[in-house]
């Protein structure tokens, strides 16, 4: 299995100078050290210019066999089904709240009991899935795309691009979410159309610098690696080597932060609601219910437990998915597994 170790030309060099681990990660390494591979593959790689394709394809091949991936995919699918068709899972009307039922424990037809206002907790959790999932997934996506792109550019090119993007990030970082969110939600386009999407955009506006910073760090780490230098020496343009070599090698921390963010955003939506600029009142969400539970922590802990449990399972499945994808992208881990 560890044949490439023996043939690695850099073997034995002072470790502090060489991040050999990065070198041997992807197929493209073979430009540098073609000796360690079977001739067939080496020939294949030379003929094609779109190497990353084969990397992704290989990752997918390994991914779909992983139990971690299969479990997480099934869980995520289940959550998506609940989000899309909540009425299949609850016959109760989540908007019907009668104070007579306030904080009543569970009973037939209302298995999780009632919240302070006398609304059915189970129905609210089920119907809250859609908004929470949308907020979590789309905020994460926007943040990864925008923050990732800006961070990668800043880290890779350095110089004035880095200076401008990083300092812009600093300013956004320092803006209090409370203040920013209140203002953003006052813009006529937002104020008059309050919805899941306005929440997503608001969270994304204040969320991107964090991911930009993480990406920038990872890209700075990867940009000076020898395989990047090699790819440049072989005539690949700077931009191409960024996209084809640097970014794929910087994905691990991005995936980690993005999957944890997913959960944090779902809860953060409650922050906006708490500030009075969150979802419209008729839209249910886990974050909102979790924040409502605070007052009732001592008298009705169930109000906190159920939405928090659903949220945990969702975040867990995305964290597992992230782990599986990362493993699949890392050839060494794959071989070792």
């Amino acid at each position: 299995m560890p044949e490439n170790q023996n043939f690695n030309p850099e073997d034995g060099l002072p470790i502090s100078k060489v991040r050999a681990g990065k070198v041997s990660k992807y197929k493209i390494e073979h430009f540098v050290a073609p000796l360690d591979e079977t001739p067939l593959q080496a020939v294949d790689s030379v003929k094609e210019t779109g190497k990353p394709l084969s990397m992704w394809a290989e990752a997918w091949r390994s991914l779909r066999k992983q139990p971690l991936f299969i479990i997480s995919a099934v869980l995520i699918l289940a959550v998506i089904v609940v989000a899309a068709f909540p009425q299949l899972f609850s016959s109760q009307d989540p908007t019907y709240c009668a104070l007579e039922n306030s904080n009543e424990p569970g009973r037939a037809g209302h298995i999780m009991g009632f919240n302070l206002q006398g609304c059915d907790i189970y129905a609210r959790v089920i119907y809250g899935t859609r908004a929470s999932l949308l907020v979590g997934i789309f905020t994460t996506l926007i943040v990864v795309v925008v923050g990732g792109a800006l961070g990668a550019l800043a880290g890779f090119y350095g110089g004035w691009i880095d200076a401008i993007l990083a300092r812009l990030g600093d300013i956004f970082f320092a803006l209090p979410l409370i203040l920013g969110a209140i203002i953003v939600m006052q813009l006529p386009a937002f104020r008059d159309n309050r919805s899941v999407w306005t929440v997503i955009v608001t969270l994304a506006i204040f969320g991107w610098p964090q991911l930009a910073r993480i990406t920038r760090g990872a890209v700075i780490e990867a940009r000076d690696a020898d395989y990047v230098k090699a790819s440049r020496a072989l005539g690949l343009s700077r931009f191409h080597s960024l996209v084809k070599h640097v970014i794929p090698n910087s994905l691990a921390p991005i995936i980690v932060v993005a999957t944890v963010n997913l959960g944090v955003y779902i809860v953060a939506e409650a922050t906006l609601s708490f500030l009075g600029v969150g979802l419209p009142p008729d839209v249910m969400s886990w974050g909102n219910d979790i924040s409502l539970a605070q007052q009732q922590l001592r008298s009705n802990p169930m109000m906190l437990m159920w939405p928090a449990l659903f949220l945990s399972v969702t975040v867990l499945s995305f964290i597992m998915l992230g782990d599986a994808v990362r493993d699949a992208l890392d050839p060494k881990a794959r071989k070792g597994a």
């Binding site: 803006l175 979410l177 204040f206 944090v264 922050t271 605070q294």
Partner: peptide, 10 residues
């Protein structure tokens, strides 16, 4: 930006 789990505690 790290979101604080703001609450009615405030």
């Amino acid at each position: 930006m790290r979101y604080s789990h703001a609450s009615k505690a405030v």
